[in-house]
């Protein structure tokens, strides 16, 4: 029974959060939108002028944009496949009874807590370095030519690093969901003679479908804006081979000081992210009903 009095108190209690978030969202976003229609470079102060859709045209027709868009999509898709696929297998494995389960679980989720700059630099130097890296040592050990990961396969290297960070996340979420699976239903199916594969397809997978969807959507949101890992390893290179949309906009903004162009790119990134966000919000909203 919410009376009029408690309702106004409730509104008062909510207002700081609502007002601050509204300001945090609306002010910068409308500024970005406004800048995106200006010719505005920090190196030429006082020269701002309205240019309509020029920035968008410039940004979208730049070959770097196409490269960055493709890289962004490849990065997101590859990491999703590796982390969700690997995470699912990992969760199924960790759900089995075995010795030291608790400890292995801790080992597996650990990479998720490592800050992005550290994971990127550790992989870049100590693992992927073509001369002193551990991968090079292993390659020489089995008689192969060591690979200079970051310059010959820059995007793949970044995919590996980012997957290493996100596979634990998927494994952790899916394991949690797996543990809420009804044991009795499984046993009943087992007694009815359903094979392990059939039990997986007909009971486990449907049970996990919601968790898998949540993992995919949340990871997509974070993966669309991978930044630090690229900055400290390849700096987007060689050329634009490992530049994603976030990194491209960053170079436009803080290296070339082109506020207008970067803002147009920012708006494009916002639109791209929103497409994903709509699905995610619907999904979570559905859960809220129950």
């Amino acid at each position: 029974m919410a009376t009029l009095h408690t309702q106004s108190t409730a509104r008062l209690m909510m207002s700081p959060s609502v007002i601050l978030l509204l300001a945090w969202m609306l002010i910068p976003l409308s500024m970005t939108l406004y800048f995106s229609f200006l010719r505005y470079n920090l190196l030429m102060p006082g020269m701002e002028e309205w240019t309509g859709f020029f920035n968008y045209q410039y940004f979208v027709t730049d070959p770097a944009f196409t490269a960055a868009l493709v890289n962004t999509l490849v990065l997101v898709a590859s990491v999703l496949v590796i982390s969700v696929g690997g995470g699912l297998l990992m969760a199924l494995l960790l759900d089995q009874p075995f010795f030291g389960r608790g400890i292995v679980r801790l080992l597996v989720i650990a990479p998720f807590f490592v800050m992005p700059t550290v994971s990127a630099l550790v992989w870049k130097n100590m693992l992927m370095h073509p001369v002193y890296g551990l991968f090079a040592w292993v390659a020489r050990g089995v008689g192969l030519e060591p690979v200079d990961w970051l310059s010959s396969a820059p995007l793949l290297s970044i995919i590996l690093i980012v997957s290493w960070q996100w596979l634990p996340f998927a494994a952790l979420i899916l394991l949690t969901a797996l543990q809420s699976l009804d044991e009795e239903q499984m046993e009943a199916a087992e007694m009815d003679g359903a094979s392990a594969l059939r039990r997986f397809v007909h009971i486990t997978l449907p049970h996990l479908s919601r968790a898998i969807t949540v993992v995919i959507l949340i990871e997509t949101i974070f993966l669309l804006s991978v930044f630090a890992e690229i900055l400290v390893t390849t700096s987007g290179g060689p050329g634009y081979d490992s530049t994603n949309l976030s990194y491209l906009i960053y170079t436009q903004a803080l290296l070339q000081f082109d506020v207008g162009g970067a803002s147009a790119g920012g708006i494009i990134a916002v639109i791209l992210a929103n497409i994903v966000a709509i699905f995610l919000i619907r999904l979570i909203g559905k859960n809220l009903e129950t």
Binding site: P28, L224, S225, S246, V259, A262, G266, V270
Partner: peptide
């Protein structure tokens, strides 16, 4: 509120 979290940071970097 959730939707504000999904705004990519790079979209508001400049402002």
């Amino acid at each position: 509120m959730l939707s504000t979290k999904m705004l990519p940071a790079v979209g508001v970097l400049m402002p």
